[in-house]
């Protein structure tokens, strides 16, 4: 098959390229581990999860608890998902079953554009528009709620576009059968179409959550960045990603290892979500 010299060269070249691409992810995780190694070897990893506060720079009583940030990341992500999923799914249903064609096309375009808006712009907009509004209700404005709203808007198109794709992919005859049985339109949608598209919709939501948990710029700008466990949605929080972004600039040796360890935790979280997405049986 590879009789020509060119072809053999090409094969080696492409194999090399593919090898590099494939090992990149291993390299990245490996680097995180190497850089975070002091945290593991010194046993700080236990303090990492058990300490209640995060003061890695303090001389007298340094504390290395990532728990407040981890909770903040999860809280912001869950809030964003809770805010984005219902309107995202409803928008997709409207688009497929109710809207006239021109409006559906327009909505498609708008969603695709919204999906492409850079996160820094969401963050900037949240900082200048959403935060002042929340500030009027309950200061300081930079809060868990602001983060949830901004992230929610950001992942809304992901939810809506994947739901639409999942609904379009189901077997049409199922819905027609429902119609033939004389079921009402909402009943056809909620009892037949949605359950049939369930796995696609769920994996879309997981994808949205992956995006939300890894988001840095939007949350760093609107969440207030105080590393405490929040007690209400108006409290400022500081997710893991923000911590890395804020502290990497001035972190010294030991502190930096902690941040790399935090990055490793993030990769584990997103990798876990990816696995969950895979597990979903595809109908």
């Amino acid at each position: 098959m590879f009789r020509h010299r060119n072809d053999r060269g090409l094969k080696w070249l492409l194999s090399g390229v593919a090898l590099i691409c494939g090992s990149l992810v291993i390299g990245i995780v490996g680097f995180l581990l190497v850089e975070a190694w002091p945290v593991f070897s010194s046993g700080q990893i236990f303090a990492f999860f058990s300490d209640g506060a995060w003061q890695p720079g303090s001389d007298r009583e340094p504390q290395f608890g990532i728990t407040p940030m981890l909770l903040a990341s999860l809280a912001v992500t869950l809030l964003a998902t809770a805010l984005a999923v219902p309107p995202g799914i409803l928008a997709a249903i409207f688009q497929i079953y109710y809207s006239p064609k021109w409006l559906a096309t327009f909505q498609d375009r708008a969603m695709e554009l919204l999906a492409g808006v850079p996160s820094i712009i969401f963050g900037f907009w949240g900082l200048t528009v959403i935060v002042p509004i929340i500030n009027q209700i309950r200061p300081p404005g930079q809060s868990l709620l602001a983060g949830g709203i901004v992230l929610g808007l950001m992942i809304l198109p992901t939810v809506s576009l994947t739901t639409r794709a999942a609904l379009q992919a189901i077997d049409r005859s199922l819905v027609y059968g429902g119609a033939a049985l004389g079921l009402s339109r909402p009943r056809q949608i909620f009892s037949i179409a949605l359950p049939a598209a369930r796995s696609g919709i769920l994996s879309g939501c997981m994808l949205a959550m992956t995006r939300a948990i890894g988001e840095t710029m939007a949350v760093v700008m609107v969440c207030g960045n105080i590393a405490k466990i929040p007690h209400s949605i108006f409290d400022p929080v500081r997710p893991v990603t923000s911590t890395i972004a804020l502290e990497m600039g001035y972190a010294t040796e030991g502190h930096r290892s902690l941040l790399y360890a935090a990055g490793f935790v993030l990769v584990v979280l997103t990798g876990f979500l990816l696995l969950l997405r895979r597990r979903e049986p595809v109908l």
Binding site: C21, V25, L266
Partner: peptide
């Protein structure tokens, strides 16, 4: 591994790049 690479948060790419 490409799938996994796509799911890695961008800040982690920053850590790696640094």
């Amino acid at each position: 591994s490409v799938d996994l690479l796509a799911s890695i948060p961008s800040i982690v790419f920053g850590l790696f790049g640094m």
